[in-house]
Nucleic acid binder design. Structure first.
Length: 429
RNA sequence: GGAGAGGUGCCGGAGUCCGGUCGAUCGGGCCUCCCUGCUAAGGAGGUGAUGGGGCAACCCAUCCGUGGGUUCGAAUCCCACCCUCUCCGCCA
């Protein structure tokens, strides 16, 4: 959520920044919010003045009664009753305005970072760099899509997954299941030097899902358990960010770094028919997430660190990777600046997004009310939050199946994973 | 799921029966200063958040789990809900 005060003090700058998202509706919402804010302050000042008078009259009533001046006190009571009626009416108006303003602020997206490249869609995202084998260097036997490789080896069973839960769920077995778990462990171990492992709840309250920005705007994308009013998390970012909700942190203890391996649940409401084959898009998948809570000053450096870590893991696995700078039109609602990491899947002949490293500025911290007390003491400031996938298990799993497919149809296990595979160095079905 | 106890400031803990001078006693912690070879002990003062206004000193409002209600006035009375703890039940 944006700071209303920036709308108040420099509306033009906010409008200019948000217009880079190339969505005219947003600008209209911002202007509307600025108008509500003016009205809200006018009315709440009026209300506060009334309250102040009521309080002072009430004090007088108390002392008059004690002095036995009953009649005088009753006169004041009548006056205060009158003021009370006005106060109640005004307070109702203020509450309604406040709610309207908050509702609007919750759907207005974050301002893009000045360095975020301008663009309208993912087609405009510039490639920043890359590594690993040349995408053209892959041999014929590696150009088989993972869903065929997996089904042939009997380690991916989409039919049975559909029997249990419907389309877009996956069921892994044997070496496929082990490989998936190995990737999770590998992703955690790669970051354990600097990140505290957390095993959070994966069913969370509406409040928690609002803090990170999924609610209210993207309710259709998440699974909701109505009876208990709980939501299945779409990413580990959700519980990790809310861990410090409504807390004031000491600047000296920042940055806080957390990592978590969780299942992620997504309804994929707008993606029916896209990537329906294999492991590329699924209602439930595993992911290792890394996250940091920082001061504003620390944020840019930590952003680079998270990105470097996301890249390091796929690079160690021997995959072809590239980083993509997310342009203003493709930036997520809460994102201030984002870089994606993609790996090349020679069988599917596609670049797969395996990580999105994002800096949220104070946008999430304002929703979540995560504050920082500066080193020398003094007033609090909002924290900055950043996160990224350290390892999105199914897509890396998919790329590995294709890249490491041998001419005989078996899949070699890359060396960094050997220790997690119970001695398996190849998946032979 | 059943029964009971409880949620107050950075922490502990009063206040709630009997509404007013209670943003809140007291203690601890923390900060500044004084005293003292150092440290400890001792003494004095200070110490919340949020919103609004003001160049500033400062002023106004809100906050005692949350939301309603009663009242001139609510931490205190009434209603609903949430959470924590203890015991019982159930259970990976």
């Amino acid at each position: 959520m944006l700071d209303v005060r920036t709308l108040r003090n420099d509306l033009d700058a906010v409008v200019e920044a948000l217009s880079r998202r190339h969505d005219p509706g947003i600008v209209a919402e911002v202007r509307q919010a600025a108008g509500l804010d003016v009205e809200l302050r006018r009315l709440s000042t009026e209300r506060d003045e009334l309250r102040s008078r009521i309080r002072s009259i009430s004090k007088d009533v108390g002392s008059l009664f004690r002095e036995g001046k009953r009649e005088e006190a009753e006169g004041l009571q009548a006056e205060s009753r009158q003021l009370g009626a006005d106060e109640k009416r005004l307070d109702g108006e203020v509450a309604a305005l406040d709610e309207a303003l908050r509702a609007l602020l919750l759907v207005i997206p974050n301002v893009p970072h000045p360095d975020a490249p301008d663009g309208r869609s993912d087609a405009d995202n510039p490639v920043l760099g890359g590594g690993g084998p040349d995408p053209d260097s892959y041999a014929e036997h590696q150009r088989v899509p993972h869903w065929e490789v997996g089904e042939a080896l009997g380690i991916l069973d989409s039919a049975r997954a559909a029997k249990l839960s419907g389309a877009m769920f996956s069921l892994l077995r044997g070496g496929g299941a082990t490989l998936s778990r190995a990737l999770t462990q590998f992703g955690l171990d790669a970051n354990a030097d600097a990140f505290v492992e957390v095993r959070p709840p994966t069913l969370v309250s509406s409040e928690t899902l609002t803090a990170t920005g999924q609610l209210p705007k993207f309710a259709d994308d998440a699974y909701h358990l109505e009876r208990d009013d709980l939501w299945a998390i779409p990413t580990g970012e959700v519980p990790l960010t809310s861990m410090h909700r409504d807390e004031i942190l000491d600047a000296a203890e920042l940055p806080l770094r957390y990592m978590t391996a969780t299942p992620c649940y997504r309804r994929e409401a707008g993606s029916a028919g896209r990537d329906t084959r294999g492991m590329l898009r699924s209602h439930e998948f595993d992911k290792v997430e890394i996250l940091a809570v920082t001061t504003a000053e620390q944020a840019p450096g930590v952003f680079e660190e998270l990105l470097a870590r996301a890249v390091a893991s796929v690079d160690r696995l021997g995959l072809t990777w590239r980083t993509v700078d997310i342009c203003t039109g493709d930036l997520g609602q809460s994102h201030h600046r984002s870089t994606d990491v993609e790996v090349f899947a020679p069988g599917a002949d596609a670049w797969l997004e395996v990580s999105s490293v994002s800096w949220f500025g104070d946008y999430q911290a304002r929703r979540a009310n995560i504050r920082v007390r500066p080193d020398g003491g003094g007033g609090t400031a909002l924290a900055h939050t950043l996160n990224g996938s350290a390892l999105a298990v199914p897509r890396v799993w998919a790329a590995l199946l294709e890249v490491y497919r041998q001419p005989d149809g078996t899949v070699a296990v890359p060396e960094p994973l050997w220790g997690y595979m119970r001695g398996m160095v190849a998946i032979t079905g």
